[in-house]
């Protein structure tokens, strides 16, 4: 692995609190190309701490691209310039010596900045609480092999279920729309037999909460799909739209 280092100029967004004004602060760093961008900030933070300065607040956890905790906007792109990875998987070998790198938090009304690079994404949880589940209690369920599910269908459901809830879709969307996130959960259940009983009720409830929280509407620019670390497809949004219309247009089941 590489012995050389890169010299970079970082412009990192610092904001002391949700109501305070923020601004970019410049930092000059020297970093190994094998380090991840978060490891670079770790090192920078360590030196800030040594000087008695407050480290840059940012979130990360698994550092394997699966927990969805990290999410920085790097040179205008959520999770940086490399497709299909989370911020923690962005390695500095993707940059050139002398580059200027802008690091900002997600920007969306529904994801307010809490401090520096950390935003509040609890809106996603609220969408989930509204209907992101199959209503089964623990115990008393049929044998796992009782309902065969075609491999293709399981794969389609899994494609949607891979969403890590990082919020990059919202961050990338010029309308800060949460449709890719919401539709991924809707689709995961909409295609499986287990999800059918609540299929149409689920989509209505989740969309209603999504709208309430101030996420924007979709204008089909597909920036969400392009920036999604898991490559979740906008076909899920189409699925959600369809289910939403069906749910709105069909009469109440009780009347029929």
């Amino acid at each position: 692995m590489a012995d050389t280092t890169l010299k970079l100029k970082l412009k990192i967004w610092r904001q002391p609190g949700p109501k305070a004004a923020g601004s970019f602060v410049d930092y000059d760093v020297e970093v190994s190309p094998d380090a991840s961008i978060l490891e670079m900030i770790d090192e920078l933070n360590n030196s800030l701490e040594q000087e008695g300065k407050e480290p840059i607040v940012f979130e990360s956890d698994c550092r394997e691209g699966i927990c969805g905790t990290c999410g920085l906007v790097i040179n205008g792109q959520p999770h940086g310039p490399v497709p299909k990875i989370a911020t923690c998987q962005l390695h500095m070998r993707q940059f050139n010596d002398g580059d200027t790198v802008y690091i900002e938090p997600y920007r969306a009304k529904a994801f307010p900045v809490m401090k520096d690079l950390t935003v509040d994404r609890s809106g996603f949880d609220k969408i989930m609480y509204a209907g992101g589940f199959v209503s089964v209690n623990t115990g008393g369920v049929p044998d796992a092999n009782a309902i065969p599910i075609p491999k293709e269908v399981a794969a389609r459901s899994m494609d949607a279920a891979e969403c890590i809830g990082c919020g990059a879709c919202v961050a990338a969307c010029k309308n800060a729309s949460a449709m890719l996130f919401t539709s991924a959960k809707v689709t995961q259940f909409a295609v499986l037999p287990q999800g059918q009983p609540e299929r149409y009720e689920r989509v209505q409830k989740m969309v209603a909460v999504m709208d309430e929280l101030g996420f924007g509407a979709c204008t089909n620019t597909y920036a969400c799909e392009a920036e999604c670390p898991k490559g979740i497809s906008v076909k899920n949004i189409a699925q959600m739209n369809r289910d939403f219309f069906v749910s709105k247009l069909s009469g109440s089941k009780q009347e029929a």
């Binding site: 089964v136 369920v141 065969p148 491999k151 399981a154 899994m158």
Partner: peptide, 16 residues
């Protein structure tokens, strides 16, 4: 059984 009922998309064979 529980996880399948919740809609966890486990890997399946061609027979489903």
């Amino acid at each position: 059984d529980q996880c399948v009922a919740q809609g966890v998309p486990f890997a399946r064979e061609y027979g489903g």
